[in-house]
Amino acid sequence: MPVDSEVTIVTVYPDLLGTYGDGGNGSVLRGRLVARGMRASLLEIRSSTPVPETADIYLLGGGEDAPQIEAARRLRASGALSKAVANGGVVFAVCAGLQIIGESFVDGDDKPIDGLGLLDLRTTKMGGPRAVGEILLESSLPGYSGRISGYENHSGGTQLGTGVKAMGRVLVGTGNDRHSRCDGAFSGKVVATYLHGPVLARNPKLADYLLKLIVGEMPAIQDRTLVQLGKQLHGDRVAAAYRSESKRGVLSAWRSLRG
């Protein structure tokens, strides 16, 4: 798209999916466009409002069980996201959002619920304690090398089908499940992850990766405070992930010593 046209970013159902400050992802995307002198509009589409089909970027966040099921039901009924993807739109889904855009996930009683089928992945209960804490990935996104930092808090375990690749390899934390050592998934312009924080505030490079899928190459941001604060926070959280891992290591060593 031409650099001078307006990019439309939609936060999908912030009243149902926004548990982990996920609305921040929209603010970051818009902020990084505006800082480049580009035009952007950020629409918060509550669940009582129809989701537009021709926006550029769609954001889905985390949610509790009941609202997650309600969001999946409404989105399935509307079909807007599938049409948006067919129109070339970007979808970036976090946590419950990841589960919703897959083929299926489960409710509190392990009953399967249909997802939107935008990504070839299925989510069931992971078993054991919730995966909670700092998480760090090595990116597997095409043309994106580097680490991605976030915070995870989920009990679902996600299996990827053959139609998708993981978003990253897990360096610290849990990710999709306890075995695969990978997190999230992507296919074309649809990207999903368990990382919140919000993840785009912690990883400006990931924010720019998503923007590039829509606008192509972009000029550098001139506001140095914005650039440096973003890098500083990223570095701070990368270090925190390694610190949390060494603490976990000491704990598990202590447990194994006690038998």
Binding site: G24, S27, V28, G31, A201, T225, L226, L229, G230, Q232, L233, D236
Partner: peptide, 13 residues
């Protein structure tokens, strides 16, 4: 730093 980034995007120095 989390606060700083949050405020920066909210237009606060």
């Amino acid at each position: 730093l989390d606060l700083a980034v949050r405020l920066k995007y909210a237009g606060v120095g």
